[in-house]
Design a protein around this nucleic acid. Sequence first.
DNA 1: GCCCAGGTGGGTA
DNA 2: TACCCACATGGG
Length: 225
Amino acid sequence: MAAACNAAETSPNQQLTGYYAALLERFGPQQWWPARTRLEVILGAILTQNTAWHNATLALGNLRRQGLLSWRGLRAARIETLEECVRPAGFYRHKARAISEFADWLERRHGGSLARLFSLPADQLRRQLLELRGVGPETADAILLYAAERPMFVADAYTRRVLARHGIISAKADYRETQEFLHTHLPREAALYNEFHALLVEVGKRHCAPHSPSCPGCPLEEFLA
DNA sequence: GCCCAGGTGGGTA
DNA sequence: TACCCACATGGG
């Protein structure tokens, strides 16, 4: 029998820990982020905005074929070239501009050094990233977590949908509220946030359709039963 | 043909 | 602050 989505009798910490264990048991380690380098993590974080990851990989493949997967390459490229590469990921004008400005900014502000950028304290790094056009809270946190290995939970649409569907957070909880909840009730560990977020995306894709009241076959419902 | 996908930024009240 | 809307392509 499918469980009612009511976990009120256990603490949020216990719920989240139990959810994590249940997801890990069902799906196994997800080995995120699916990228080869920190630069690819950053580009992927921009390219996947409101876009299926598959389309982001098409754009990354185009950039690779054009020899643009380096800061020098990106800075030297014409914006029209970037737009053409990025087109499969949608919103291509925005994303090409964001990538181009990021490359210029890194050169200007940090001498083109990702090591220098990522040596900043997490709060300062996040503030700097948020100053960039096309980098909002989620993209900044994805870069912090998956490229800089800082413990910032990426409270994306899947995370919010899955947690809300199971009554863990309010359906109205926004990005900041969801992230604060997770930071409050989970150990502040990058490896845990990495794996948990990836698992939430996986369960969201497989079992948690938008606008559906339930999640058939969802391991979280079995956990609650 | 419609819905959805690992958001962000600008405008308006 | 809180909504609303534009931005765009590819797959099911």
